[in-house]
């Protein structure tokens, strides 16, 4: 995914948009990779949290089609470990919001099996719908 080195105006605009939405100074990330080591869900991601940060630094919009942004569960482990005080979980949320605000749901709530619906606590449904539907 990280291939381009030329930064276009469109790339810059995307970086600016995610920086505003997340409130994170994304350009301050120095790619130490601690977030990726700390992340308990990294094994289910297609790019690591550090790669996600780098991709946003480069303004590559394709990052919104990665699995990573949806696998992030906002557990804030990266948040407390980042040596630069950045918050990759907020960046992931901003990327999700970019998609969800286009009325694109990541999960179809009508496909949850009835058997599961009878067991799942409300806390699971409310949080899943907040994170994965727009």
């Amino acid at each position: 995914m990280i291939s381009k080195t030329e930064i276009t105006a469109k790339n810059e605009a995307f970086l600016r948009r995610i920086t505003e939405l997340s409130g994170v100074s994304i350009t301050r990330c120095e790619q130490c990779g601690i977030c990726s080591v700390a992340c308990p869900l990294v094994s289910g991601m297609d790019i690591s949290p550090a790669e996600m940060m780098r991709t946003v630094q480069l303004g590559q919009e394709e990052v919104t089609s990665t699995k990573t942004i949806w696998v992030c569960a906002s557990c804030f482990t990266c948040t407390v470990r980042c040596p630069r005080g950045l918050d990759p979980s907020k960046v992931a949320e901003a990327l999700r919001q970019i998609e969800l605000r286009k009325a694109i749901d990541y999960m179809d709530i009508s496909t949850i099996p009835a058997e599961e619906m009878r067991q799942l606590p409300q806390i699971a449904l409310v949080s899943a719908f907040r994170k994965l539907t727009g």
Partner: peptide
């Protein structure tokens, strides 16, 4: 302190 997978229990229970 490791995350239990939280809301993914709805869409990915194997995780």
């Amino acid at each position: 302190k490791v995350c239990c997978g939280a809301f993914h229990t709805v869409n990915d229970k194997s995780l």
